[in-house]
Write a protein that binds this DNA or RNA. Structure first.
Length: 958
RNA sequence: GCGGAGGUAGCCUAGCUGGCCAAAGGCGCGGGACUUAAGAUCCCGUACUUAGUGUUCCAUGGGUUCGAAUCCCAUCCUCCGCACCA
């Protein structure tokens, strides 16, 4: 079985830590580089896919260290919210699946008890993340600065941030509608179902309540489609439901009992005044809002008292349910006999066409129903029909002429306008409800309740948005697509509820202790806090020292050190130190995060920085990484078991995984986790280790020439390319060079007989350093085997030296010839004993030379080049071969990029090839002779030499 | 719906500031070398054609250009975020 690298990995990790390479200290002499990855939430174990971004961050930081930067790479975790509470609850309840999950991921049995407490769980996972993930993977992070969003000192910083936001006028309070249990208060409705026992997928939906006056009462219907009011022709009640009559602002409303209860939570001054059976209302006439039309009340069993208000306005033209039900009423004799509805009344109700949708007739609902063959009320396919009509109408529909002032308007726009018009006229109100039943843990139903004093951050603030957007243009934001549309995201950001009540962990809202700051809002300025956590973790400053004046001073430089020291109890020297650290390290150079952050975390990160901090402290870069995904659980379950990160590290080796993350694809695409591929990378590393080891100490001492110069040039090209790739944080580009191209070149070098010890040693040094960022353990191991001084992790990447275009071209030239020979061998099926190479006749070189003279930035056209060539005595005698070659030359030049058009000119092909004849002969197993096509008495039985052109000699195989 | 990303050879993926791009790299596959053998490693090949510098080709259909995988338009298909959840 494969070799276990754990020991080698931990050996070098301890060396690095002992040397303190991961510790970041201010050094005014060196340029700084500060990078973070968006800290993860510690709500359980991570899987191998999550490590992609983190590993890239470490690699980038390592590269920066090698190029002369003083690097700060801090890490932390996030635990705000209800994740830890939910997790602890599962452990307390002894949830067998969850316990199994913990054990499978390597949680020691004796520690499970600790997880029954939310903070215990957070501390446990903090340790797992740091020790089993980040340290295990060789990160050079400054562990001293580790912080977590639930730490008290961190909370102080967050509270300061909120004070600043308030000072800037960016906080506001307004009513908000949120789920709550009547007994337990605010609850979280989310998939984890921490607070609830049912309904995790429910969403809050906004209804428009429409008021239908009938004598002295109002029938209240709830609709999601206020734009269809012009099509109202009748009204549905459930005859078997006992409705409530409630008083509201002097009016009497009729709604279902459930709706009455919900309304009381959302509206003031509601009192119950009586009840009425649905059947009693059948046959009433009521006045439809907006249009003032009097419409009849009909019975319909589909009116569910728990949905909306239990009363429904009917728009048969655009609502499939209504269309079917109306048809049903018309042909059902019961309507007349039981409810006593007159024939005339029923006949008077006819659909009104209100929305014009391409692909539909006057009555979209009718079309949809007929297309799907629905004939009876209660058909389950009505739901689908409804969605389809709604979607098409919303997207493509326009209001017809009957819609008065809204005629011609797009549905999308009319919807909002009409709702607002009715609200303004007192004909409608808003109402919120959940899309499905939600039940609290205590067993009571969860309802939407109005919260009058909800706090928001005003991210819609125009000036802040504009200033942030402007700053983004200056930033390095990758991928470029995100650089483009981050402005759109910022624009779209509105008020954000930034605090919540209930069962949540987090920092208390500084102005009102009943609120807890929510999870996004406490994670915006935190990179800055790593500059302070160092001192907090050491105990140099305590939470109680971290007053407003403290942060004002160290972050913003506000106030007098002496006074601040007095007030906070922190020494002036320490205050100065922290202030200097912040001045040195901030701004943040790169914030790396997964693509899920693009619309949530990054915008608030940017806006809070812009709002609170000065120009000099604005972030410089954002790097977004896409995911490593698993198809059908493959990522978490491999052959009969889990794939915890430490297990994967042991199985594949940390470096193989890091190389996989860096090289498998660009950072900006999703990739499916594939163990075989990781194994391939592991093999690649082993192959490289073997090749590098073989190079060490071999070779002879001597003057560098020929192929040595080529290798030198190649290594310089690679150095330049690696640096250039990393300017764009393109780790994949770096890895392609370091793990593939360099190895290929070294093979070629040795194949060509290269063995100069100085040259190979120099190449080895560059090569190993090129591998340092991505596979640091392997690189360090090689560095030491090679006998280089110090630690590779501490070494500098050499500057790229000069590149020899001629040397590089020459080898390419040889490879092409070899490739041509192979090609001919393959096609002809022969094994040649002798190969004759004919280099271009000099007149062809002359033609190219003339073209070059004429070029001046462009390529000459065929007629003028022909003319010039034919004017040349020496050329004219070659007759019509000249214009033919001119044609080809021009064509070739035209499709060659301008900067490489003439690169081939300086090589004396004949001399060069003669010097390589031995090599070619060894490679092909045939005798190789080189002739210039010009030679007198040339041996050329098949006339091949005619095909020879500069850069591409003709060949004869015998 | 709104907003965004993408469709490249058997597969995964580069390229996409237009020009040595028939298209890098990896995997897979075929052949060869080494080896007692297996594995590993190395070399060659892997659209079609052919004693080589030719033809067709980068979702589909148009267009711009001397020249397009790369730019523009249309069509088809796939994927992702949408709010209080880093």
């Amino acid at each position: 079985m494969a070799h276990d690298y754990s020991e080698m990995e931990s050996k070098w990790q301890s060396e690095w830590m002992e040397r303190g390479l991961n510790l970041a200290e201010r050094d005014e002499e060196k340029p700084k580089f500060m990078m973070i990855f968006a800290y993860p939430g510690v709500t359980g174990y991570l899987h191998v896919g999550h490590l992609r971004g983190y590993a890239c961050a470490d690699a980038i930081c390592r590269f920066k260290r090698m190029t002369g930067h003083n690097v700060l790479f801090p890490v932390g975790t996030h635990a705000t919210g209800n994740g830890a509470i939910s997790l602890a609850a599962k452990v307390r309840d002894g949830d067998p699946d969850f316990i199994d999950y913990l054990l499978r991921n390597g949680c020691p049995e004796e520690r499970i008890g600790q997880l029954a407490d939310p903070m215990g769980a957070v501390e446990f996972f903090n340790e797992v993340y740091v020790e089993d993930y980040w340290k295990r993977f060789g990160f050079l992070a400054d562990w001293r600065r580790f912080t977590c969003s639930l730490y008290e000192d961190y909370g102080r910083f967050i509270q300061w941030q909120f004070r600043k936001l308030k000072d800037l006028g960016l906080l506001m309070q307004k009513p908000y509608f949120a789920p709550a249990c009547p007994g337990c208060g605010p609850v979280a409705v989310d998939a984890s179902e921490t607070d609830i026992s049912k309904g995790g997928d429910a969403e809050t939906q906004e209804y428009t309540l429409l008021k239908f006056r009938s004598d002295d009462v109002h029938l209240i219907a709830a609709t999601l489609r206020p734009e269809t009011v012009y099509g109202q022709v009748c009204f549905w009640v459930n005859p078997d439901v006992e409705y409530r009559m409630i008083s509201k602002d002097g009016e009497t409303w009729i709604v279902s009992p459930q709706a009455a209860e919900k309304l009381m939570l959302q509206k003031d001054g509601i009192a119950e005044v009586g009840t009425i059976m649905g059947r009693e209302m059948v046959g009433w006439m009521c006045e439809a809002p907006m249009i003032g039309r009097r419409i009849p009340v009909f019975p319909a069993s589909f009116c569910d008292p728990s949905v909306g208000t239990g009363l429904v306005t009917s728009v048969p033209s655009d609502a499939p349910d209504d269309w079917i039900s109306l048809e049903n009423v018309r042909r059902d004799p019961e309507m007349r006999s039981v409810y006593g509805l007159s024939e005339e009344l029923i006949a008077s109700v006819t659909p009104v066409s209100i929305i014009d949708i391409e692909g539909y007739g006057d009555f979209p609902a009718e079309d949809a129903v007929k297309r799907m063959g629905i004939t009876e009320p209660g058909d389950p396919r009505l739901e689908e029909a409804k969605k389809q009509v709604y979607k098409d109408g919303y997207h493509m529909g326009r209001m017809k002429d009957v819609c008065g002032p809204f005629a011609g308007m797009r549905v999308e726009e009319a919807k909002d306008r009409m709702r607002q018009a009715m609200i303004d006229a007192g004909e409608a109100e808003l109402f919120y409800d959940l899309t499905e039943e939600v039940v609290c843990r205590c067993g009571q139903p969860v309802r939407i309740r109005r919260i009058d004093d909800q706090w928001f951050i005003r991210y819609g603030d125009e000036e802040l948005t504009e200033r942030t957007s402007e700053h983004c243009r200056e930033m390095t934001i990758l991928p470029p697509e995100y650089h483009e549309n981050v402005h759109g995201v910022l624009d779209w950001f509105r008020e954000r509820a930034c605090a919540r009540q209930g069962n949540w962990l987090g920092t208390r809202f500084p102005f009102d202790e009943k609120w807890i700051i929510e999870a996004i809002s406490d994670s915006t300025l935190y990179p800055l806090y790593y500059l302070i956590s160092l001192y907090a973790n050491r105990g140099d400053i305590r939470p109680e020292n971290m007053t407003e004046a403290f942060f004002d001073y160290v972050v913003l430089g506000i106030g007098d050190v002496g006074a601040v020291s007095e007030e906070t109890g922190v020494g002036t020297e320490l205050l100065g130190e922290i202030r200097a650290d912040i001045g040195y390290w901030y701004p943040l150079d790169v914030n790396l995060g997964g693509k899920e952050h693009m619309t949530v975390h990054f915008p608030v990160f940017l806006m809070n920085h812009r709002a609170i901090l000065p120009d000099s402290m604005q972030p410089r870069g954002i790097l977004v990484n896409w995911y490593i995904t698993g198809k059908k659980n493959k990522i978490s379950k491999s052959k009969g078991g889990a794939q915890p990160i430490p297990g994967a590290a042991a199985r594949f080796g940390v470096d193989a995984m890091r190389l996989y993350y860096a090289h498998v694809a660009s950072m900006f695409v999703d990739v499916e986790w594939d163990e075989d591929l990781v194994m391939n990378y592991r093999q690649r590393l082993e192959r490289i280790t073997g090749a590098a080891t073989e190079m060490m100490g071999s070779g002879t001492v001597g003057e560098a020439d020929g192929i040595d110069l080529w290798l030198r040039s190649r290594m310089n090209t690679h150095l330049a390319d690696m640096r250039e790739a990393m300017d764009r944080f393109d780790l994949r580009g770096l890895a392609t060079i370091a793990y593939y191209e360099i190895l290929n070149d070294l093979r070629w070098y040795s194949r060509r007989g290269g063995c100069n010890r100085d040259v190979t040693t120099e190449a080895l040094r560059t090569w190993i350093l090129g591998m340092m960022p991505v596979t640091p353990h392997t690189a360090e191991e090689l560095w030491h085997s090679a006998g280089f001084e110090g630690l590779a992790a501490e070494a500098s990447l050499p500057e790229a030296g000069p590149v020899s275009a001629a040397a590089e071209y020459g080898e390419k030239f040889i490879r092409d010839i070899l490739s041509d020979i192979n090609q001919i061998k393959k096609v002809s099926g022969m094994t040649p004993a002798r190969i004759v190479v004919y280099t271009s006749p000099s007149w062809k070189n002359r033609v190219v030379g003339i073209a070059r003279e004429m070029a001046e930035g462009g390529v000459p056209d065929i007629p003028s080049l022909t003319k010039r060539c034919m004017a040349d005595e020496t050329l004219r005698k070659h007759g019509k071969a000249v214009p033919e070659f001119v044609k080809k030359t021009v064509a070739d030049l035209q499709r060659t990029a301008s900067d490489r058009r003439w690169s081939a000119d300086d090589l004396d092909e004949t001399t060069f090839l003669r010097s390589c004849a031995g090599f070619l002969s060894a490679e092909t197993g045939a005798e190789v002779v080189v002739h210039s096509a010009d030679e007198d008495g040339l041996y050329d039985p098949q006339g091949k030499s005619r095909a020879a052109v500069p850069g591409r000699p003709a060949l004869l195989l015998e």
